[in-house]
Design a protein around this nucleic acid. Structure first.
Length: 284
DNA sequence: GGCATTTGACCGAT
DNA sequence: ATCGGTCAAATGCC
């Protein structure tokens, strides 16, 4: 997962698996750019001017995001192919934080006095989580599930921290669904890469319990709760609460249904090409 | 007071 | 040694 770009030890000019992965990513981005171009041509055929313009604008954003990602990757490749050592130094720049804890602010005294904990199972456990979808979107919070934030991490060479969410019913219903949100760009409307892992078992639970329409189900459907994940806004430094609310409002004013939310994003990726079963359930 | 968020510590993988 | 992912105490908010 990690590219280890600033490890400093990596001065061998030989190709690594990281290089291969970067190549693959560049290939995919080029393909995506091409597809976005095709999509733009199709979208331009929409007869209604309003819808057409909006769609063209969206496709334009997608193309821009692809292009900037492509640029970043390509400039990295050039760095390493020409001068690995220089590249390693150069890439250290964004890592303004220490890796652990992120340095996202201190808490007076209380944290310092926190006792060291002894724990058992930590970190990655066994196999990789099954990635259900990866979505590039302006509205990562707008997927109608109830997420609880459980972590935030500064990612190497990433401009913004990655935010970790688990299903708000992970405890109640042992729902394993998780979501990682990482801001991709801040030029224009901020774009977020949302990675969804594991299926929502809470969703099927509610589907099996039609009688639970009033209390618990209504909680799941609590759009205000589910659609607003304020911590996501924390990825946009300087946003105050009121501004966050404004922003949430403006985002929700897109009026997406979940299908629209997904379809308005980049083509989603399912590792094995299986039908992705992440469609809104009856409570959607 | 209860719940959600923050954030440093910790763990396993590399 | 370093990284990404997770835990859980402390804290904030309603």
């Amino acid at each position: 997962m990690s590219t280890r770009l600033n490890s400093g030890k990596k001065s061998q000019p030989q190709r690594s698996s990281d290089d291969d992965r970067r190549d693959a990513a560049i290939q995919e981005l080029r393909r995506g750019t091409h597809l976005a171009d095709l999509l733009r041509k199709q979208v331009e055929l929409i007869p209604e001017p309003g819808r057409r313009d909006a769609a063209v604008a969206n496709v334009g954003e997608i193309s821009m995001a692809m292009a900037s990602s492509l640029n970043i990757l390509q400039s990295e490749m050039e760095h390493y192919s020409s001068s690995p050592e220089v590249g390693a130094v150069a890439m250290a720049a964004p890592a303004a934080y220490s890796s652990d804890g992120g340095g996202t602010g201190e808490r007076n005294g209380a944290v310092a006095g926190r006792a060291r904990r002894v724990r058992h199972r930590r970190g990655r456990h066994g196999a990789e989580l099954p990635i259900i979808k990866e979505i590039l979107t302006e509205a990562p919070e707008n997927d109608r599930f109830h997420w609880r934030k459980y972590g935030e991490k500064t990612i190497l060479n990433a401009q913004y921290p990655r935010l970790y969410y688990k299903c708000g019913y992970s405890d109640d219903h042992k729902c394993p669904a998780k979501k990682y949100v990482q801001q991709q760009s801040n030029s224009g409307p901020p774009l977020f890469m949302v990675t969804l892992t594991n299926e929502h078992t809470c969703e099927t639970l509610f589907r099996d319990e039609p009688s639970s329409s009033s209390s618990s189900a209504s909680q799941v459907l609590d759009f205000a709760k589910a659609s607003l994940s304020p911590p996501v806004m924390a990825a946009v430094p300087g946003l105050k609460k009121e501004e966050e609310d404004d922003r949430s409002t403006s985002l929700s004013m897109h009026g997406y249904s979940y299908d629209e939310y997904l379809s308005s994003s980049l083509p989603t990726m399912s590792p094995d090409g299986d039908q992705v079963n992440f469609s809104p359930g009856p409570g959607w």
